[in-house]
C-alpha cells in the first residue's frame, strides 16, 4: 500500500477539536497552529485592537506516505476518496513522511500536492520528513509541522531529520514494548460521574470508582478503568494511542472509543452488555472482550 490514511480519525474530529479547544489539548494527529499573520504594527497609535494572536489546536487528517511512487499513490488515494468524497472536500490534510523507507526516491511534492488538490483536499503541511524532504516541501509552500510539539510523550519517535524512517515503520506495526512514561499524569475519581459531566486525563490513565451515568463522558490519552457500570461514554487513547484500553465492570455504554475507533451502544452485542469487559484495538478494529 502506498498511502494510508492514519487513524487521525475525523470520525471524532468534531468532538476532539471541541475538547482541544476546551482543554488546550494537542494530539498526535493534530497540528498546533499559531496565527502569526497579523503583526500589530498599529500598537501605540490605534487604541482598539483589531487583531488578536491566539494559539489553537486542530485535528487534521494525516496522509501517511509509504512509498514515493506517485502513480500508485494516485491510484490508491483515488480509491479511498471515492468511498467518501464529501469527507475530503476542502479538508486540510497533513502528509506524514516518517514511514517512507530509508533511501526512497525523492517525494515529488508538486505531483502530490496537485493530486491532493485534485481530490478537493487542501494540503497544509508535512511532518516526519528529513532535511531534504522538508526543503522540497517548503518549495511547495507546505508547512513543516513540528513533530516534537505534537508528539505523544509515551511514543518512542525517531527524530525526523537525523534518522531514517524505517524503524518508525516497524514501531508502527509492532506492539510497542518500550514505553517510557514521561510526564504522564494519573487521575483517580472516587465519586459517580453524572450526566453532563466530563472528565479528561491528559497524557495518562483515568480510573473511576463508581458508576458513569448515561450522558457523562470520560476521556483519557491513556487507559480508562471503571470500577462500576459504564453507562455514558468512554474514550481512551484520545491522542491517537492505539494501545490504550478501556476496562469496566459492566458495559452499558452509549459509546466507547479507542484512538478514535468507536462503537455506539446499538453496535454492542447484547451478550457483551452488562458484563465486565475490556475494549481495545486489534489491527485497527475495535474489539470488546469479556473479562
Amino acid at each position: 500500500m502506498a498511502a494510508r490514511l492514519m487513524p487521525g480519525n475525523r470520525y471524532f474530529a468534531w468532538l476532539r477539536s471541541g475538547i482541544s479547544m476546551l482543554l488546550g489539548h494537542r494530539d498526535r494527529g493534530s497540528t498546533k497552529t499559531k496565527s502569526m499573520t497579523a503583526k500589530s504594527e498599529s500598537e501605540g497609535n490605534a487604541p482598539s485592537a483589531v487583531v488578536e494572536l491566539k494559539a489553537a489546536a486542530f485535528t487534521l487528517p494525516v496522509i501517511r506516505l509509504l512509498d514515493t511512487d506517485m502513480d500508485t499513490v494516485a491510484e490508491q488515494l483515488g480509491a479511498k476518496v471515492d468511498q467518501a468524497p464529501e469527507f475530503f472536500r476542502n479538508a486540510p490534510v497533513v502528509v506524514d513522511l516518517s514511514a517512507l523507507p530509508a533511501g526512497a526516491d525523492e517525494v515529488q511534492f508538486p505531483l502530490l500536492v496537485g493530486l491532493l488538490r485534485g481530490h478537493g483536499m487542501i494540503p497544509v503541511g508535512v511532518r516526519g520528513g528529513n532535511a531534504s524532504q522538508n526543503r522540497a516541501a517548503e518549495v511547495m509552500e507546505l508547512a513543516i509541522m513540528s513533530e516534537t510539539a505534537t508528539r505523544n510523550p509515551r511514543q518512542v519517535t525517531t527524530k525526523p531529520a537525523s534518522k531514517p524512517a524505517a524503524p518508525a515503520q516497524t514501531a508502527e506495526r509492532l506492539p510497542e514494548t518500550t514505553k517510557p512514561v514521561t510526564g504522564g499524569s494519573f487521575k483517580l475519581i472516587t465519586h459517580p460521574i453524572r450526566s453532563g459531566q466530563r472528565v479528561y486525563t491528559r497524557e495518562g490513565d483515568l480510573s473511576v470508582v463508581g458508576p458513569i451515568s448515561s450522558g457523562a463522558e470520560l476521556m483519557a490519552d491513556g487507559n480508562i478503568h471503571i470500577y462500576g457500570p459504564l453507562r455514558g461514554r468512554a474514550m481512551a487513547g484520545m491522542n491517537g494511542d492505539t494501545q490504550a484500553r478501556i476496562f469496566c465492570q459492566s458495559l452499558e455504554a452509549e459509546l466507547v472509543s479507542v484512538a478514535g475507533r468507536y462503537r455506539v451502544s446499538e453496535n454492542i452485542p447484547t451478550t457483551l452488555r452488562g458484563v465486565p469487559v475490556q475494549i481495545f484495538l486489534d489491527q485497527e478494529v475495535l474489539r470488546i472482550e469479556k473479562l
Binding site: H191, P192, I193, R194, S195, G196, S213
Partner: peptide, 11 residues
C-alpha cells in the same frame, strides 16, 4: 436522567 444531571451540577 435530569436528576443525575442536577447532581453533576451540584458537585
Amino acid at each position: 436522567r435530569d436528576s443525575d444531571r442536577m447532581l453533576g451540577i451540584l458537585a
